[in-house]
Computed example of a mutant assay.
Amino acid sequence: MLDGKRLVLERYVDFQWHSGFAKSQKQKSIRSLHEMALLEYGVKNPLEVSSKSEDPLGVALSSFNLKFVTKKGRILTVESAFQGSKVFELGGPFLDIFDFSPIDAKRDARLKSHGQLTKFSFFGVDWDLEPKTAFYDWLYINALIKNENLIAMVISRDGFTDIEFNPEKSINCQARSAALFCALYHTDRLDFVLQSRENFISMYAGRVSDPHKPEQVRFLV
Rank of each mutant, 00 (worst) to 15 (best):
R157M: 10
A205S: 13
N199M: 04
G91M: 12
G124I: 02
I145L: 12
L150C: 00
R107Q: 10
L47N: 08
E130H: 15
I30M: 04
V208R: 08
R107A: 11
E89N: 00
R31D: 11
K5S: 07
K23E: 05
S113D: 08
Q16L: 15
D108A: 15
K5H: 08
I103N: 10
Q27T: 02
R157A: 09
W138D: 09
L57T: 09
L117P: 00
E89V: 02
P131V: 14
Y41A: 03
R11Q: 04
I145P: 07
L57Y: 07
K44L: 06
R157E: 11
E198F: 07
N166F: 10
F68Y: 03
I155A: 02
A175K: 05
S80M: 09
F68K: 00
K67A: 10
G115Y: 05
D137T: 13
F15Q: 04
R110T: 03
S177P: 11
P167K: 09
T133Q: 14
I75S: 02
G84Y: 06
A143K: 02
D188N: 12
T187F: 07
S62C: 10
I163M: 08
L57V: 09
Y185Q: 11
Q116L: 08
T187S: 15
E215H: 09
N172H: 10
H114Q: 10
P93R: 01
K52F: 03
S19P: 00
D191C: 02
M203L: 09
C182F: 03
R189D: 01
D3M: 03
G73A: 02
D210A: 08
T187G: 06
E35T: 15
D99L: 04
R197D: 03
V8H: 12
K119G: 01
Q16W: 15
H34N: 14
M153Y: 09
N147W: 07
S19G: 05
I155H: 06
D96N: 02
T70R: 01
P211T: 13
Y136W: 13
K26A: 04
D158W: 06
D188T: 09
Y140L: 02
Y140D: 01
V8N: 13
K86G: 08
L194Y: 12
K44T: 10
N166Q: 08
Q25L: 01
L57K: 13
K112W: 09
L66R: 06
S50W: 01
Y185K: 13
A60M: 06
L39Y: 14
F64E: 15
K146C: 05
L38P: 03
S156I: 12
L90I: 04
A37H: 06
I30V: 10
Q174Y: 06
G91Y: 08
S209E: 13
T133H: 12
V59S: 04
N65Q: 13
C182G: 05
L61M: 01
A183Y: 11
E215P: 06
F160Y: 14
Q25C: 03
Q195E: 14
R11H: 09
F160E: 06
F122G: 01
P46H: 04
K146F: 04
Y185M: 05
L190R: 07
G91K: 15
